[in-house]
Design a protein around this nucleic acid. Structure first.
Length: 402
DNA sequence: TCTGGGGTCCTAGGACCC
DNA sequence: TCTGGGGTCCTAGGACCC
């Protein structure tokens, strides 16, 4: 299989290209700064001086993405804005606008599928493409097709993108990073030793900070060093599945297909508060936020035509520790009140002494609205009687707390 | 002044069933 | 009486990704 990996650069202000820019934070501040601009101005008309600077930003939030000039200063995705402001105070900060990104996302994906229909969606700005059967897909090792896609996306959206072409998804993804932004890079099987093995293990999609730390404790820093360990050693130290997988990826092997369709497993809404809240003192505020989250999830489910039967909550305490609770009910729902009731019960089962910084509501075990009807009728379950009794007991208590 | 929001997948123990 | 064994579902936590 031949795979493409394309990621799109979402900076939409041409006058900011080449400057350090971070996107993130959100909340009022940044939005207001840009809204002060003259009526009817197009994006390109906005003078560079009109954009707010990172050094003037105060508040919670992280960077969603940063331009390459900003990354030179060591700032990058998921970094706290306050920390980033120290590293690069002169960077311009832009607000996150996910609705806008989704619009562009749909457009660039549409451009791609018109050229190469076998596309896997990997989020708002990334896709995999299987171009084995695309006419002309093999010319110059895929480079010709990559150029066509790059140009088509630019024409349709004004966005640039980086593309990696390789024999499989694993290598295509790594290849896409060789020439960013707006580059194309082709990696062949024979390039494994020269181009992949020198890379740090972190570059493998699936090796995160924890796995990397453990690898480093065993003196394994590069993918080449990983490839040098034998499979048995990796299995003994990292477990059967992970060890074997590490061995495969180190040798550039990956047989995962490009998956064009998938069903969602869960939907959730969560929010970090402007300030930490306490269950007792801020009860009313928390209750209102909680209800709102339940309504949002319910809306999401209904809009997309799903129902779920596992309802859960997530808390993040001020010490950043996370607690989750969930409960599976015996019918499917997408109703805000029902979700709120079960989620309220979950909240009763979690410690609420520490201040909270985040609250989330999740609905899982999803089914399409039509499919769920058939599933819902068939099963009076063992144990459901006992659970019904438990529920009655805790429902009363729930009402008193939230 | 640290550290968003939306996801997926995996693990592991216990309940429960055959 | 010493105690199987497999399969599935539920729950909590955690790693990882975009």
């Amino acid at each position: 299989m031949d795979a493409f990996y394309a990621s799109v650069e979402l900076l939409r202000y041409p006058q900011l290209k080449g400057l350090p820019v971070v996107i993130g934070g959100g909340r009022r501040k940044v939005d207001e700064a840009i809204r002060e601009l003259p009526e009817g101005a197009t994006l390109a008309d906005i003078p560079v001086e009109a954009f707010p600077l990172l050094k003037d930003y105060a508040g919670r939030g992280v960077i969603t993405t940063a331009t390459y000039p900003a990354r030179q200063f060591g700032v990058g995705s998921a970094m706290g804005l306050m920390k980033a402001a120290k590293l690069c105070p002169q960077a311009i900060i832009l607000p996150v606008d996910f609705d806008e990104y989704r619009k562009f996302s749909r457009r660039f994906k549409q451009v791609i599928t018109e050229i190469a229909p076998v596309m896997e969606d990997r989020g708002v700005d990334e896709v995999y493409i299987d171009f084995t059967d695309v006419p002309g897909g093999q010319r110059e090792g895929g480079r010709v097709l990559a150029r066509l896609i790059q140009k088509s996306i630019l024409d349709a959206t004004g966005l640039t993108c980086s593309i990696g072409v390789a024999p499989n998804k694993l290598l295509a993804k790594m290849a896409s990073e060789f020439d960013k932004p707006n580059g194309i890079s082709v990696v062949f099987e024979d390039d494994l030793q020269s181009r992949i093995w020198p890379l740090p293990c972190r570059k493998v999609n699936g090796i995160g900070p924890k796995a990397d730390e453990k690898l480093q404790r065993h003196e394994i820093r590069t993918i080449g060093e990983l490839a040098a360990r034998d499979r048995e050693w990796l299995v003994a130290n990292f477990g059967k599945a992970t060890g074997a997988w590490m061995h495969e990826v180190a040798w550039g092997r990956d047989s995962r297909p490009v998956v064009t369709e998938s069903e969602p497993v869960s939907m959730s809404r969560e929010t970090t508060f402007d300030r930490d809240l306490q269950a007792v003192r801020d009860r009313a505020e928390l209750g209102a936020i909680f209800t709102h989250l339940c309504e949002k999830v319910a809306e999401d489910l209904q809009r997309k035509g799903y129902v779920g039967k596992t309802i859960g909550i997530k808390l993040r305490y001020d010490d950043f520790k996370i607690a989750t609770r969930d409960q599976t009910i015996d019918h499917f729902t997408a109703d805000a009140k029902a979700i709120r009731q079960i989620a309220g019960r979950c909240l009763k089962r979690v410690p609420l002494e520490r201040p909270l910084r985040l609250l989330g509501v999740r609905v899982g075990a999803l089914a399409k609205v039509g499919d769920a009807a058939a599933v819902a009728v068939d099963q009076p379950k063992a144990g459901s009687r006992r659970r019904a009794l438990d529920d009655a007991g805790s429902a009363a208590q729930t009402a008193s707390l939230f």
